[in-house]
Write a protein that binds this DNA or RNA. Structure first.
Lengths: 128, 128
DNA sequence: AGTTGACTTGGAGTTAACTCCAGAGCGTAC
DNA sequence: GTACGCTCTGGAGTTAACTCCAAGTCAACT
């Protein structure tokens, strides 16, 4: 699978895919005889995983660390688990904060609705 | 209220407070006779609101727009409401994505737990 | 043989959101 | 009256995460 197809499939620019590989955010992709990247299924799974984690805001640095640990093999299983737990907890914290803000926004919107409603009523009264 | 106190109260650096004011993320704060910022209750409410919204990831640009609309007065009530609705929807979308990622992380962590459990079991067997 | 189009690399540029700094003003403490 | 501490302004620097670019390679057409 060439880079163009992967780019289309996961909606990541070719530049981003090359960048991710360069910084070790995904393991190195093999090149074919012409020197072009030839993504395996495995590579694609990494791309998908990283895209997913980045989408939730996990930092690039942390994900690089995860990939590094992964490449070190079975000895790092515990460390990888701990890393994921740390990220999971932070994610949860952020979600909780966002939930509070969501409620606050809903409140504020409801109040704006009231304001507008009141104004319309005033106009109606003026009309009649 | 001087900037130091506001900085302490909301855990925002003085530089950040000045920066927010400079770019219009909070309305201009009055200066006392010596030229120092003297935050009113109103100013503090803005600081708190902006800090809260930024904490949930609402973009600075959008919040500046909101403040601008606010300063234009009652004529912009509807526009402000629409702006908030837009941000609310985006926030919700991001939260949903994060929720999916959270579940995926939990899954992955559970699988790591199994892996580690299995390894321990193997060690036990070897011991006996 | 030459042009086209996709891809390569290394490196520079961009964007958002701060963060830091130099030089100066003001008010109190010695 | 000068040293100290707090704050001021305008502008430069930083960080994270891309994004863009120039120069070159390679295979496939024409």
């Amino acid at each position: 699978m060439l880079i163009a197809e992967v780019s289309d499939k996961y909606d990541l620019s070719q530049d981003t895919l090359r960048y991710y590989e360069r910084i070790g955010l995904i393991p190195r992709v093999n090149r074919n005889k012409s020197g072009l990247r030839d993504y395996t299924e495995e590579d694609c799974k990494w791309v998908e995983f990283i895209k997913c984690m980045r989408g939730a805001g996990l930092p690039v640095e942390t994900l690089i660390e995860y990939v590094k640990l992964f490449q070190l093999g079975d000895a790092t299983v515990a460390a990888r688990k701990e890393l994921l737990i740390g990220q999971r907890d932070q994610l949860l914290t952020r979600m909780e904060e966002m939930k509070r803000v969501l409620e606050r926004l809903d409140d504020k919107i409801a109040r704006y609705e009231q304001t507008i409603g009141a104004k319309e009523k005033a106009l109606m009264a003026h009309d009649s």
